[in-house]
Amino acid sequence: MLAQQLLNGILAGSVYALFALGFTLMFGVLGVINLTYGFYFSTGAFVALHATRYLHMQIWEALPFAAAIAGLIAIVIDELLLGPLRRAKAPELSSLMVTLGATLLLYSLMTAWFTTDIRRFPPTVFDGGAFEIQGLRITLSQILIVAAVVSIVGGLAWLLRRTKLGLAIRALAENDDVAQLMGVNVGGVVHLVSFISGALGGAAGVMIGLNYNAIQPYMGESMMLKGFAVIILGGLGDIRGAVLAGLALGILETLTAGYVASSMKDAVGFLLLVLTLWFRPVGLFGRIAAKRA
């Protein structure tokens, strides 16, 4: 049972990691906690659902398609809500409040439209086949998720460390005024980062929706609560920290449910969150956060 539980934990953890990645990237570069982020998670799942159902896409087509749509929506929301505040140099809490209001608005509209009924992918979208190795059971969708998360994280690391664009993003994260002086197209990079973050959130939504076959508007809100725990634990704005903290949270939750009590499963993340804030607010691995704070 331990091996199976670890596998469950790694699976949940990699999706937490993927979700937290976009969330923390947004904070690290743009310097705001964007609470609409969870909405991109729901959006990604719903777009993929409709793409497979009505546009008859295969899942490997629907995944990038849904991620791209979520990314584009993220650019629009950022421009509409945070653009005016950035230009007015409003205090950081204004952006927190504005995205908070927008979250409520967006979820309510989405619920009015789609209702809170749970939807699922058409059964033909993905073969639910499974392998069994010495009692350890792995389904195809689980393999897909872990593979996708590994390649997306790898791709993002490569983009940030090895490309000129990555250099520009990192420059913006350090200091936007200086970055502008050095010739970085700040507006363009802001849009790019919004897009990447939105797409990461959207992709995470598709995968969760696929694996547990349950899609509904508020799925992003519950995920956001886990997301907070992960990015604080990893250190606000710390990308490597988000990945490690995401995996750690997934595994800890599963082990808690398996060996302690399943009623404590959801408390794990929040207890870690509160303890981190109390004892080590820069996050377990954090350096960047210390400066940001």
């Binding site: 049972m1 199976q4 539980q5 469950n8 934990g9 699976l11 949940a12 969760i208 547990y212 349950a214 508020y218 799925m219 519950s222 939750e253 599963t254 449910a257 398996g258 009590a261 399943s262 009623s263 499963k265 959801d266």
Partner: peptide, 20 residues
């Protein structure tokens, strides 16, 4: 006896225990 939240979607940890 295993518990979960009404809005949960991931039941794998609990069901693994149940299976065992």
């Amino acid at each position: 006896t295993e518990t979960f939240g009404t809005r949960d979607t991931d039941f794998s940890a609990q069901m693994t225990k149940v299976k065992s």
